[in-house]
């Protein structure tokens, strides 16, 4: 089927098998490989993206269902050379090791702050529990979010 996906502010016209997930569309058809496939069944969070500003799993989302709805991926977080405060905090706090879960962690972390769930460490831990990290960077992810949250601009648009 023919469809147009709006990713990081840019439209992509694609011809896709209706079975194609948003994750596979991003990775294999648009060439945005930042979003990762860790389980392909909604169990790990590595494919987390923002759909109309809300964090969702790209692996369980059919590309066909997101036509005309803006999607933001990890590639859309930074403004040019300027990293998003969350990206910078992840580097400073060494909040990753292998880096594979990191795009999903970042997308969840940004959403976690925007949702108002980064008020204390326990809330951060709970609201970051949909993103598995096998390297065990959890304490540093919490520290990075705690640090980045006050630097983030209040969110505009839909939550």
């Amino acid at each position: 089927m023919e469809l147009t996906l709006n990713i990081n502010g840019r439209d992509h016209r694609l011809s896709l098998d209706p079975r194609t997930t948003l994750l596979d569309a991003l990775r294999d058809h648009i060439g945005l490989t930042g979003s990762k496939k860790g389980c392909d069944q909604g169990q790990c969070g590595a494919c987390t993206v923002h759909l109309e500003g809300r964090r969702v799993l790209a692996c369980l989302t059919l590309a066909a269902t997101v036509q005309g709805r803006p999607v933001t991926t990890v590639e859309g977080l930074a403004h040019g050379e300027a990293l998003h405060p969350m990206q910078a905090a992840f580097i400073t706090h060494d909040a990753f090791q292998c880096g594979y879960c990191t795009p999903g962690q970042l997308m969840s972390a940004v959403a976690c702050v925007h949702e108002g769930h980064a008020r204390n460490d326990d809330a951060i831990r709970e609201y970051m529990s949909g993103n598995l990290c096998r390297c065990g960077a959890y304490p540093k992810i919490v520290a990075a979010i705690r640090d980045a949250a006050p630097q983030m601009a209040p969110k505009t648009g839909r939550v």
Binding site: R27, G31, L32, T33, G34, S35, K36, K37, T73, V74, E75, L77, A78, L83, Q87, F90, I91, T92, D94, F96, G99, Y100, T102, P103, L106
Partner: peptide
């Protein structure tokens, strides 16, 4: 020292083998 590959990893630019074009 922060990781010199940190920027690649937080921007989605770090290429894992399945990401290679």
């Amino acid at each position: 020292h922060v990781r010199i590959d940190g920027r690649a990893k937080v921007t989605g630019q770090a290429r894992y083998p399945a990401d290679e074009p």
